[in-house]
Nucleic acid binder design. Structure first.
Length: 281
DNA sequence: CAAACTCCCTGTTAGC
DNA sequence: TGCTAACAGGGAGTTT
């Protein structure tokens, strides 16, 4: 499923191809994909808008757009791929398959297709970048995301570390796969009480998050078997319950934390009683 | 305020 | 073998 690395690679793949292109028309094949505004407005605003840049914020692909009606306005198309979404550039004349939910017809004979089997993906069009960006915490690959900022975030959090990593309001971009992979690399138990990580552990976790994400980007994304991402990166613990830990050969276990499947090594990622949160097991 | 549900979806897989 | 039910997941919204 697309998380920060897959979204980053999506942006890299399409940015140079669509920057500078004009949108001839937008087609909406599944209305609920569009969060805002309504479909008529959505199409009206996008028609003849020019793509000025493509960026990433957390797990969002952001198309920066310039419209020219009576005066110039900047708009932002926030695309969230959720679990199964993907963006494809294809010849405009080719008919889309049944999983394509939205199409931007571009000048130059190509179309940007938003394909999403499970219909969980969402697209928002707004002139207010901050409205969506401000809902998100610091980007996990922001150079400002360091030991100090992570320490600040964990500060008084009494809950387990794992759901903190998944909370986009606190840190943007980490999903279930990379949360588990980062904790494994940092040798921190997912149940570990967030506020009782030592400075050493916080440093290790901060470094692990960055390195795990960068490695995944470099490898072209992580292939977790759902066919959505065609990367070569293989998870060390995610989905590997029953397999052995690559570091110590102990069996990887799977549990559930905050309604999420969670994978870890009980030997490499031990949980001291003093660090345990209340009400587990 | 935080944690826990519920809902949205559908391809895949476990279980009978 | 063939069917059904459970499962997976991110985030918004609701309830506890």
């Amino acid at each position: 499923m697309p998380e920060l690395p897959e979204v980053e690679n999506t942006v890299s793949r399409i940015a140079s191809e669509i920057t500078g292109k004009r949108i001839r028309a937008a087609q909406v094949l599944w209305k609920r994909t569009i969060t805002e505004p309504n479909v008529a407005q959505f199409k009206r605003i996008l028609a003849n808008a020019t793509v000025s840049a493509v960026t990433r914020r957390g797990k969002f692909v952001v198309l920066h757009l310039r419209t020219k009606h009576t005066h110039t306005t900047n708009y932002y198309l926030f695309i969230h791929l959720r679990m199964a979404g993907s963006l494809h550039l294809r010849p405009a004349k080719l008919p889309p398959d049944k999983f394509v939910r939205m199409i931007l017809q571009l000048t130059g004979g190509k179309a940007l297709c938003f394909r999403d089997i499970r219909k969980f993906g969402r697209v928002s069009l707004t002139s207010d970048y901050k409205k969506i960006s401000d809902r998100l915490g610091i980007d996990a690959l922001d150079p400002q995301f360091n030991y100090r900022s992570l320490q600040q975030i964990l500060g008084k959090k009494s809950g387990a570390i794992k759901p903190i990593l998944l909370n986009q309001k606190l840190i943007a971009g980490i999903g279930n796969i990379y949360a588990d992979e980062s904790l494994w690399r940092a040798r921190i138990n997912p149940y570990h009480k967030a506020s009782s990580l030592t400075p050493t552990e916080i440093k290790r976790l901060n470094n692990s998050i960055r390195l795990v994400l960068l490695a995944a980007i470099r490898m072209g994304g992580t292939d977790n078997g759902d066919g959505v991402v065609a990367g070569n990166n293989k998870p060390k613990v995610y989905g590997k319950n029953g397999d052995r830990c690559p570091r110590c050969r102990t069996l990887i276990v799977k549990t559930r934390i905050a309604q999420r499947g969670t994978h870890y090594c009980t030997k490499c990622q031990p949980l001291l009683k003093s660090n345990r949160i209340a009400n587990i097991f």
